[in-house]
Amino acid sequence: MISVKDLTKIYPSKSSVPAVALNEVSFDIKEKEFVSIVGKSGAGKTTLLKLILAEEEPTKGQIFFQGQDIGQIKRSKLPFLRQKLGVVFQDYKLFPSKTAYENVSYVMEVMGASGEEIERDVPKVLDLVGLSDKAFNLPSELSGGERQRVAIARAFVHRPDVILADEPTGNLDPYNTFDIIQLLIKIYEMGTTVVLATHDKEVINSLGKRVITLDQGRVVRDDKKGRFVL
């Protein structure tokens, strides 16, 4: 489903040594897989997800999504790629002026869904993340854990092929962290590929799923049933 080949990303730097975020990274992610990308801060996890989302361009190498080279997609066609992905960010990135319901329904609007489809699907997804009673609250009226659940609902409402979650528990306490990971597992069990970037040791060790370990921009381990080893 996702195939990363010799991916290198170098950021221009004011110092004489350029910042190498990713260094010839290669791996494949199959359909309906749950993959964790782990590593210390600065290991290249976020950069990797940004490149898959085409938020940035690689310096070298390629990423194929469903056989298509992301680097070759024109800017005007990027929305079609992004509509097949669902993204969860560490800082939630919710629309501050929209309610939880509107945040979730926006993605369906983007895809041209009808009013009936939106009215049918959005409450279901909000129910899935346990926020039916907070549907009409603004993000500022929600706790961190609740905001992240809205973000997951938004990422999942259009049934994307893949969910990319970038440190989704980074700002949360252990209790909310557990909830969010349970939600991601539920979504995975419903048949969605999940790519989770995290540096949370507890989370990784409790999952017992594939773990790709990054260190200084390189893949240092790729274990089928991995643990957090660094």
Partner: peptide
């Protein structure tokens, strides 16, 4: 900020 989120969630 909202415009960049719109783009990231797939808005044309």
């Amino acid at each position: 900020e909202e415009i960049s989120i719109m783009r990231l969630v797939g808005a044309s």
